[in-house]
Simulated assay, not measured.
Amino acid sequence: MELLPEGQRNTATEVSWEDQQKINKFSTLVNKKDNSLIILEKLKTEKEYLDDLSMELELLDEDEKIQYKLGDCFVFLPVSKALTKIEQNDTKLTDQINEIENQIENYDENLKELKKHLYAKFGNNINLERQEKLI
């Protein structure tokens, strides 16, 4: 026996194993998307730093030697070689950013399909919308 307010009826839908798998997949995809967004922000910030650095280095004399970080140590490189390395790193970062953006698009497509199916079956009995974090 259920105690519902007067005039309301029970609209609960039974959750099948397949439905539970879709709900779990939805949750997993949301977490993967969140992690990808964090990585994307870090890569974009790093790319901005590289762009700023290359602009600063272009103002220097090409034969001047600067300290360039390779791994855990610094080596002296001519500005022209340092700019070449920065351009290579910039290209790699651009490729990584594009790859992560494509992953996020795929996650969004999968999430949209799962939402469509789950809302069709459960209606208002399931909430797949996210609350914005207040920090």
Rank of each mutant, 00 (worst) to 15 (best):
E2V: 12
L4K: 08
P5Y: 02
P5E: 01
E6K: 09
G7Y: 03
G7C: 01
R9G: 01
N10K: 14
T11Y: 03
T11M: 12
A12M: 12
E14A: 11
V15G: 06
W17H: 11
E18M: 01
Q20S: 05
I23Y: 04
I23G: 03
F26M: 00
V30L: 14
V30W: 07
N31V: 07
N31R: 15
K32I: 03
K33V: 01
K33W: 00
K33C: 03
D34E: 13
N35F: 15
I39V: 07
E41I: 10
E41P: 01
K42A: 14
L43K: 15
T45R: 09
T45A: 10
E46N: 10
E46T: 10
E46M: 06
K47A: 09
E48R: 09
E48W: 03
Y49A: 06
Y49S: 11
L50H: 13
D51F: 08
D52E: 15
D52L: 10
L53E: 12
L53I: 06
S54C: 05
M55P: 00
L57V: 03
L57F: 14
L57C: 06
L60N: 00
E62L: 02
D63H: 04
Q67T: 09
Y68L: 10
K69N: 04
L70A: 11
D72T: 09
C73Y: 13
F74D: 13
F74T: 07
F74M: 07
V79C: 04
K81W: 04
L83H: 00
T84C: 08
Q88P: 00
Q88E: 11
Q88G: 07
D90T: 15
K92V: 12
D95C: 01
N98S: 12
N98Y: 04
N98K: 12
N98T: 09
I100M: 09
E101A: 12
E101G: 02
N102R: 13
Q103E: 15
E105W: 07
N106W: 02
D108C: 07
D108N: 15
E109Q: 10
N110A: 13
N110Q: 15
N110G: 02
K112N: 13
K116F: 08
H117V: 06
L118P: 03
L118W: 05
L118N: 00
Y119C: 00
K121V: 14
K121G: 02
F122M: 00
G123V: 10
G123I: 06
N124R: 05
N125I: 01
N125A: 13
I126Y: 06
I126M: 04
N127K: 14
L128T: 03
L128N: 02
L128M: 05
E129S: 12
Q131W: 03
E132I: 14
E132S: 11
L134Y: 15
